[in-house]
Write a protein that binds this DNA or RNA. Structure first.
Lengths: 194, 194
DNA sequence: CAGATGACAGATTTCAATATCTGTCATCTG
DNA sequence: CAGATGACAGATATTGAAATCTGTCATCTG
């Protein structure tokens, strides 16, 4: 574990992710992270002022992976309605797999998001920003009607909460969930059409 | 407290509500309920087989008050779109007030709903049933388009989750919530239109 | 002397002993 | 004898003492 590589914030974040994966949100300590890196815990505090800041940085990394993946759909060449459908389906699919494939890790990150409201708000702002771009394009193309694309983006995000908000994760593996998602997706897209 | 009135399930439920209001969900005990009624706790077990059953019955009473209030809108004489808007606004308003006016009591009932999934499912079935009736009327009048009113009702209920699901209660007192609700309501109604 | 260390104080968590509660049932009472 | 009681066993919750953790900082080291 104690490689001689220089101690970068990046390496600390990786070690923290590993410790969180192993011990869970409740039992992951700064001392554990330091041990994984082969340094004293005082050294970790040299790079991150508090444990909360460290956990916040890890949370941001985790959330950013999703927004980066979805950004590709926004800049793609599909027509706006297809973009919107694929973007929302992609978000649901990503969440569904994160929650279903490794429930323990998902629970860990759910705790992290609960204690890092600011980081989550930034993430949501990024996502609704992407939605706004899609809707603006739709309005420009004459496919969507919206006097205020940012407000419509927020409405679309809110209306699909059940399929991306972690508080609904237990529902995502229930039978009928895909039909329910399709129904909300149709309702939402129809609501935007010109 | 120990009136001589006959000990009906009704009186036990009222006493249980009072004990829950006073002590909260975590500390309300069957012994407390019995004391409030001036009987021994064994007597309470004569009317309700378990504490869980007692709490479930109280939860049902609480939820039923909301569905009964909304049922009046369904059977009213407004056109379907107005009914739908008023019904959803009524649901949001009821929740917003329950949560805002007495946060402690709302937290208590939130715990109760979490431990009584079956009762909540029945409640949701009742509410989506009411929505289905409104949508069916809208389809019959030619105002709404829906190949499957029950599925559309579920979609409308899901799309507006953010404004009736207790897990979002902390959001209901935030600035901008009414604009957000109006935006989702518009999106939803537009999505249903023929 | 830049960067790491580990002892330390106060805050938080753990754990086991103690107290309380749930659900039952033999007994009591009007 | 219908309905209420309260002692009881096992389950659950509370409590406080002990252990661990967070964040600081004087000291050390290459």
């Amino acid at each position: 574990m104690a490689t001689a590589a220089p101690l970068t914030p990046e390496r600390i974040l990786e070690a923290t992710e590993e410790v969180l994966r192993r011990h869970g949100a409740a039992k992951a300590t700064v001392v554990d992270v330091a041990r994984a890196l082969g340094v004293s815990h005082g050294t970790v505090y040299r790079h991150f002022r508090t444990k909360a800041e460290l956990r916040g940085a890890v949370t941001k990394r985790w959330l950013d992976r999703t927004s980066v993946a979805l950004a590709g759909i926004v800049t793609g060449s599909e027509p706006p309605e297809a973009k919107l459908r694929h973007w929302l389906a992609g978000l649901f699919d990503a969440k569904q797999h994160k929650a279903g494939d490794d429930p323990e890790l998902f629970a860990t990150y759910t705790v992290l998001t609960e204690e890092n409201g600011d980081v989550v708000n930034d993430h949501i702002a990024e996502l609704t920003g992407q939605l706004t771009a899609i809707i603006q394009q739709g309005v420009a193309d004459g496919d969507f009607a919206s006097p205020d694309p940012a407000l419509s983006a927020r409405a679309v995000f809110d209306a699909t909460s059940r399929f991306h908000d972690p508080c609904y994760a237990p529902h995502w593996s229930r039978p009928g969930i895909d039909e329910a998602f399709a129904a909300v997706l149709d309702l939402t897209v129809r609501g935007l059409r010109a």
